[in-house]
Design a protein around this nucleic acid. Structure first.
Lengths: 137, 137
DNA sequence: AATAGACTTTGAGTTAACTCTAAGATTTGA
DNA sequence: TCAAATCTTAGAGTTAACTCAAAGTCTATT
């Protein structure tokens, strides 16, 4: 069965070896096994688990909270409810973030056309409302 | 013309007065005027500018880079090109983030149904592949 | 068998973005 | 008018998530 050294694993996951050791220190990857002399050996399943961790992290969950999830996983079926609720909550969070991002995109697009027009005119003045004494950026 | 004290402005923007002072220290809001004795008075236009700053910030741009944009604004029409390019770049960034978020959402949704099924069965074992010796979380 | 390179841990350093404290000045409301 | 609340600055403290350095051990290749 193929395994990966810490820097190979880091490479696969687009992380650094430092970051993986930090995750280990924080208790995110208790499942990663070691050789007799203490070197970490990452299995494919470990990389898959780390991909899930990265996914959860990208939703904005801090590492300390992700650790709770890992602890639940280690506790087994007794924590299925908590884990389910966590993902339901993450889903809501991501959906809200996407809504926010849509609004952000609209504003940014508006600014793109604002500056495109200004650039064509050679001056921002064409957008200036004489009633406003200050540029709106 | 209505103006706002720092804590009123903070309230309007869902920020803290500390954060606004920090923004000021970092040069993000050079346009905010002061009373003769030095108290900041925020105008409506200032709040609008801060909303744009928050919008740019939400795209992941660090405050030091946002300051460059503010500096360009102060320089006037000579920097229209840079500002245009910045927003075009921000647009691409947000679009990429939305794509990433879609993938994240799919994984999270998959986990939701994974745990829903497990919860109904009372055990995670129904998802276990006997070939895998480790849970995939 | 030797040596280069990768691994280990511990603990310190970094960075961003606030957040707060202290001490003092100003503003507001009874 | 006077106390309470709010404002000011300077600078220190906080937190998250790494990131690195040092000193030593292990592994892989000649």
């Amino acid at each position: 069965m193929k395994t990966y050294s810490i820097s190979e694993a880091a490479n696969e996951l687009n992380l650094t070896a430092y970051a993986l050791r930090y995750y280990d220190k924080e208790g995110l990857i208790p499942f990663v096994e070691r050789t007799a002399s203490g070197t970490r050996r990452f299995k494919e399943a470990d990389l898959d688990a780390l991909k899930i961790i990265e996914c959860i992290k990208s939703t904005g969950m801090p590492i300390k909270e992700i650790k709770h999830f890992i602890d639940w996983c280690l506790e087994g079926d007794a924590t299925l409810q908590q884990r389910y609720e966590m993902f339901v909550e993450r889903k809501a969070r991501v959906e809200a973030q996407m809504e926010e991002m849509k609004k952000t995109l609209e504003i940014i697009e508006h600014k793109c056309s604002y500056y495109k027009t200004a650039l064509e005119a050679g001056t921002e003045d064409i957008h200036k409302n004489p009633k406003l004494e200050f540029p709106q950026y």
